[in-house]
Design a protein around this nucleic acid. Structure first.
Lengths: 205, 205
DNA sequence: TAAGCTTGTCGACCAGCGGTCAAGAAGTTG
DNA sequence: CAACTTCTTGACCGCTGGTCGACAAGCTTA
């Protein structure tokens, strides 16, 4: 008679389900506008069970972030034989395409970056990205001004993308050109112009 | 015999005292690592009294922010007769000097910008700053790509300053040159090169 | 069919948060 | 010394992230 009060699932199945749901929800609400209780409610489980699979909210967010990052990485695989500027151009284009497919989620993710508990994680992601670019610049990549310029440009990138998402009055190509030109300008300004031997993509206008 | 359980103060005196204390504490801990209870404790009053003077934590933060901004504005008064690029150069230099005097507090303030309840306020501040720069650029300031470039550069500015504060291996002049050069590069890349008739300051070599 | 066991699952709980309220006490006025 | 203003407080609320012991789903064994 009595139906089971809940359906029991395999550990890995449940975990994957929760992760997927959390990814969607974080992308919809952002980190701090989404509570663990709400995630549990949406997934129709108790909050305690959510904590059984993920030890904390920040770790759950990191897991969701990592899942998204893996997806992105696949899209932005680069050819190490290309000159640095061309690598940046190609990767940037793939990246913009990826953002274009989930503009809301990307914006929420950028917002979430400011939340206290995940700040360190996001800073690390940025540091790794910057490190990759700097490594591709050769000896110039070790100069403090160039390091600051790359960190600055990564922030430039996110801010310009947010503006693009918010206003929607630029084509992706236009944005791409502006970003690439700014990248070149930042490198030049940092004194790393020598690394820009190959064409970095023309600025429109 | 019985000493008073607390000392009563004039409304304005208390308010000014609390605002000053809050400014220090926000600068030391940032927005979300600092609770209203903690502020009250540090100021040796009850939390309820703090709420009597400031209706919410975010409003208290905004008041503290505005106080700092007023200080900053006085330091960065600009001469509207100068060409735009020179205005930016001079303002930027004054701004860097201001940051240099309170590096920790400025870093905490940038961190705080990501907190949920103050995000809108910080976005508004940035929008006003961007608007001022764009207005100084003439007709170019109305182009979407230029708008995105200015927003991007403001983010660049903050990120580069954070890097500067964190590593401390650049002189202020070096940073100033890199920032100005990047500003020019971003404008060029957005197609607003015409606005850069006057020297924007040389990039270091 | 039923007992035994593993472990997925839940309700109840905790300290702390931002925020609110009626009541009390400090200090001034008649 | 009483009356009054208003600055100040302790107790409270709903919610958050997070923890814990106990229940029960459903497989294994007999």
């Amino acid at each position: 008679m009595a139906e089971p009060a809940y359906r029991r699932m395999q550990s890995e199945e449940r975990r994957a389900l929760l992760l997927e749901r959390a990814q969607e929800l974080f992308g919809e609400y952002g980190y701090d506008a989404l509570s663990m209780s709400q995630i549990a409610r949406e997934a129709k489980i108790s909050k305690a069970l959510l904590y059984h699979y993920f030890p904390s909210k920040s770790r759950l967010f990191e897991a969701a972030l990592a899942a998204g990052a893996a997806e992105l990485r696949e899209r932005t695989k680069l050819d190490p034989a290309l000159p640095p500027a061309a690598q940046v151009a190609a990767t940037l284009d793939a990246f913009l395409g990826w953002v274009q497919e989930r503009p809301g989620a990307y914006a929420k993710m950028l917002e979430s970056a400011g939340a206290r508990e995940v700040r360190a994680t996001m800073a690390q992601v940025r540091a790794e990205t910057a490190g990759q670019i700097l490594a591709g610049l050769g000896p110039d990549g070790e100069r403090p001004a160039t390091r600051a310029a790359i960190f600055g440009w990564l922030a430039f990138l996110d801010a310009a993308i947010l503006d693009w998402i918010e206003h929607g009055d630029m084509t992706r190509e236009e944005l791409h050109g502006m970003l690439l030109g700014s990248f070149a300008g930042a490198l030049m300004a940092s004194g790393a112009g020598a690394a820009l031997t190959a064409a970095a993509g023309g600025a429109p206008g």
